[in-house]
Amino acid sequence: MEALINVFVALHIIGIASLLGGFLTQMKAISAGTARFTPAMLHGALTMLVTGVALVGLNQADDQTVNNIKIGVKMAVLIVILGLVYVKRDEETVEKGLFAAVGGLTVANIFIATVWT
């Protein structure tokens, strides 16, 4: 079971890398006002959602304790990110504030995952 959990953790990290990488590669585009949500950002957020839910289930099946409040906060932040990216995915440009919000929420989600114990 531990090997399966580790595989899903790796996939979860790949999802966050895709979402954050899509944001970071467009830092210059933000200042120019031409930033847009890329398919990699959408797929990264979806990967995070699916693997996160799977990780909670696998950890509970393995009789490990799960901090449900932390998971709930992380999921709420991810749902907001996913909603914003999904709704605006076909637009040629996204407002600076909205794009920055997705980046900030992504970084916040990383800190929630790593700092909240």
Rank of each mutant, 00 (worst) to 15 (best):
M1E: 01
E2P: 00
E2Q: 07
A3S: 14
N6S: 14
N6V: 06
V9P: 02
H12I: 10
I13M: 09
I14Y: 02
I14T: 04
G15F: 08
S18R: 03
L19W: 03
L20Y: 01
L20A: 03
G21W: 03
F23S: 00
T25L: 15
T25D: 11
Q26A: 12
M27V: 15
K28S: 13
K28Y: 12
S31K: 15
G33K: 13
T34A: 14
R36N: 13
T38I: 13
P39Q: 11
P39V: 12
A40V: 15
H43F: 11
H43I: 14
G44T: 11
A45R: 03
L46F: 09
T47F: 03
T47V: 12
M48P: 05
M48H: 10
L49F: 14
V50R: 05
T51F: 05
G52Y: 04
L55A: 12
V56Y: 00
G57S: 13
N59V: 05
A61F: 14
Q64N: 15
Q64D: 12
T65D: 13
V66S: 08
N68S: 10
N68D: 14
I69G: 04
V73H: 04
K74M: 15
M75A: 13
A76N: 12
A76M: 10
V77H: 04
V77M: 07
I79P: 02
V80F: 09
V80R: 03
I81V: 15
I81H: 01
G83R: 00
L84W: 01
V85T: 08
Y86S: 11
V87Y: 12
V87C: 05
E92P: 07
T93E: 01
V94Y: 01
E95P: 00
E95M: 08
E95T: 05
K96D: 08
G97R: 13
L98Y: 02
F99Y: 10
V102K: 01
V102W: 00
G103D: 08
L105T: 06
L105R: 00
V107N: 06
N109Q: 15
I110N: 00
F111Q: 06
A113R: 07
A113G: 10
A113T: 13
T114F: 12
W116F: 15
T117L: 12
